[in-house]
Structures are given as structure tokens and as C-alpha cells.
Design a protein around this nucleic acid. Sequence first.
DNA 1: ACAATATAGTTTTATATTAAATCATTCGAT
DNA 2: ATCGAATGATTTAATATAAAACTATATTGT
Lengths: 148, 148
Amino acid sequence: MKPIENQTYRALSTYTKLMRAAGSVTSRVHRVLSTPKLTISQFGVLEALFHKGPLCQKDIAEKILKSTGNITLVIDNLEKQSLVRRERDSEDRRYLTVHLTEAGTELIARVFADVESAIVAEMNILSENEQEQLGILCKKLGMKGGGS
Amino acid sequence: MKPIENQTYRALSTYTKLMRAAGSVTSRVHRVLSTPKLTISQFGVLEALFHKGPLCQKDIAEKILKSTGNITLVIDNLEKQSLVRRERDSEDRRYLTVHLTEAGTELIARVFADVESAIVAEMNILSENEQEQLGILCKKLGMKGGGS
DNA sequence: ACAATATAGTTTTATATTAAATCATTCGAT
DNA sequence: ATCGAATGATTTAATATAAAACTATATTGT
């Protein structure tokens, strides 16, 4: 195999493995969300609010890498289930601050613990050193910017 | 930090980096698809047909890790653009075999070359050895089964 | 041969997603 | 003070997505 083909082959092969690993781990971790009937975005919103406190929709969108138009809908659906509530900012009335309700807090605390365990279980397929190594390599790839 | 917390912290941190790397690389590579106005699924279907030849919808669904109900719609949309055509199997009339049209073949050949270059460029952020290393680690994680 | 079962594909329902257009509010410059 | 730009949120339109119900066809066990 000529050098150039070799390089291409290696890059494609590595790319494929990276994508499969991410997809495979994600899908297994997210199975935890099927019981409480949360979508991935809904989980993302609840988790952001849980760890950062009340946020406006713009900030939530940035945090979970989705468009603001999307967030409107996700929050709508969470609000229907009384897991969050919107509050109009009295200082700047363009902002809607989203708060977890009590039910929402209770739910995400429980679910997040489960997701956390699932992630730890998944990553422990690799040894401590291997995880460090993977982290370093992924960080290089992830750094150039441009999330989902 | 106590060992157990340490283990949890490392796993979560590695997981996050893996996800960010995959998302970041994906989003940059997929920018190539915006010019020919192909969605990721549409690209996946065309690419599968291009490299494997005509396939039935079930096989396509497995290849690109989507549900068959989904594939029906994706194929519908590709068919509207005359990029693929469906053909009823005369042996077993339950099967629809999906073929690339000439326009579809021409399009995917061109786009795939661009995507390939983009992937190579992305992965070359890492050295040859780092790519090999990343591939090995990702393979372990991806192997336990259960794609998207 | 025929009923039960399995399989391929479609449809339906509900949510997600982006991009673009729009609305409302605020801020800034004159 | 007011007009225009900027900003946060919503709406709309098109596509995606999964899950479940359904249709059509094929296979299998008796």
C-alpha cells in the first residue's frame, strides 16, 4: 500500500472506531433514560439546571448545543410534565429564566446518579491508564472548536 | 479526593472528552454535506449503496443504525430527488431493493471524496502513533455492542 | 393445505432538530 | 427622546427519529 493510501486508510479507520465507540457508549448509557421516559435533550436541560441553577433559554441552548428554537419546544414539553417552570425576568423582560420544580429536582437527582453509574461502568472497560490516555487524545481532537 | 470519587471523576471526565471529540469532529466533517444539501442520514444511505451495491431497506437500516420506519422516509426523500430508485424483488415480494441512479452515483462519488478528505484532515490533528492508539482504545469501548 | 408465525416495509404518533422569519424588548447613538 | 440595531424567545417549515400498530408476503409445523 502506498504511503498516501496508508495515511487515508488509517485516518478513516480511526475515525470509524471513534464514532462507533461514542455511539456505542452513548446508546448504552442512555438506556438509563428510557425508564423515566426522558429524551436526551430533556435530560440535558434538567441536568444543566440541576448543576448550574436557573438559566435562561439562551444559556441552556449553548450548554446542550442545540438551537434556541429547539429549546423552546423542549422546555414546553418539560413544563407540561411540571418538571420545570418559566419565569419572566423583571429586569429585562426578554429573558425567561427556567427553574426546576420540586418534582423536577427530585427526578433529575435520581436519574443523574443512575447515568453517572452507567458512565463509570462503561468507562471501566478501560484501565485507569487507558482512560487517561484516551482523554488526552480526545481532548486534542475536540479542541479545534465546533460542537454538535 | 477519595479513591471512589477519583474513579468516578476520571470516568466522567474521559466520557465527556470522548463525546466532545466525536461531536466536534463530526460537526466539522459534516459541514462538507451542506453544499450538496444532504442530511447525514441521506449521506449514509447513498454511501452504503455506493460501497455495497443495491441493498434492501432492512439492510440499509442496520448499516446506518436507524429504524426501518425511518429509512422508508429517508428513501422517499432521496427518491424524490431521483438519487435512488426502489425495485420490488421478484423472488420475494416483501423486499424492496434500493439502487443508486446515475445521478445518485455521480453525486455520492463526488461528495464521498470530499468527506474522506475532511476526515483525513481532522484525524491528522493526531500523529500516526496517536491515531493507532486512539483506534485501539475506541475499539475496546465500541465492541460491547449496541450502536446508536 | 392451512393456521400460526415471522419478516419487510409502511403508516402513525409524538418528539426532536435546524434554519429562517418574526415578535418583543432593550440598548445605543445621535 | 427616538430610531435603529441587537438580543431573547417564539413560530414555521422541512426533515429526522423511534416506537408501535398495521399490511403484505413468505415460511413452517402439523
